[in-house]
Amino acid sequence: MITRFEHQRATTVEQALAAVASGAVPYVGGTELLAAMKLGLTAPERLVDLKQVGELRGVRSDDDSITIGAATPHAEVAASLIVRERLPMLANVTSVIGNPRVRWQGTVGGNLCFAEPRSDLIPALIALRARLRLRSQEGGRGVDMESFVSAPFTVDRRDDELLVDVVIPTGDLLFQQYHRLQIMERPTVGVALVGAATGWRLCVGAAGYIPSWHDAPTPGGFDADAVADAIEPMEDAAGAADYKRDLVRTLVSRALSGARKVDS
């Protein structure tokens, strides 16, 4: 049973910030929040719907970055011509998250802020070195994607802050790929590999309690065994620890062999 709550709708960022400052819990698609409320696992006293805050939605770009509003549905990111052209890996990831309903109801910001360990988007954005921009009535601040999630469901966002958008640098990208195994409703393992002139980053998501990532100057600097051994896998119906480590090893090897063809 959902306990009593009040509900308001914001149409501007200022209204939304005032609402969260006074204790309202923000939502857009509600795919995780409403599900948790139905199960009685969380009981916010007030909700603020952000679906009509236009400033929080959409894909913008300039010469060396692409910015995605936090309230943008995954399907909108996947359909964006700018994203398809300059961040094809992100277009791919957002086109395979969940199922089509999840991709239209669910948003980039919701996925990041809920921080379910089995997220496709979080490791992809870590590998892409995304920067998150948060705002409160007191002002704004930036957080690197790799620093945002500290534990399952635990992120660096105060209750009075909103995630406004995600900025992804696109200036010197050489290579970007996402490899995933999914057998049930959520991914078992996801591996994102991104190469830029300034360096390469590999991030493993979904297998462990939080994503793990590694940096190297070239793809040859990554070792699939070392990456797999560094993971503390969650043991669940999708697999035991050793099995998941094997999956990580395999997917990392696939990503690296893809990279070797490019970086030669």
Binding site: A35, D49, K51, R101
Partner: peptide, 27 residues
Amino acid sequence: CDTQVCGACTVLVDGHPVSACTYLAID
């Protein structure tokens, strides 16, 4: 399923499919 995974509750809102079991009526 009442948990968005089976699709039996699918309706279209503004042309897009959603899980009506986990979508506020007021929305």
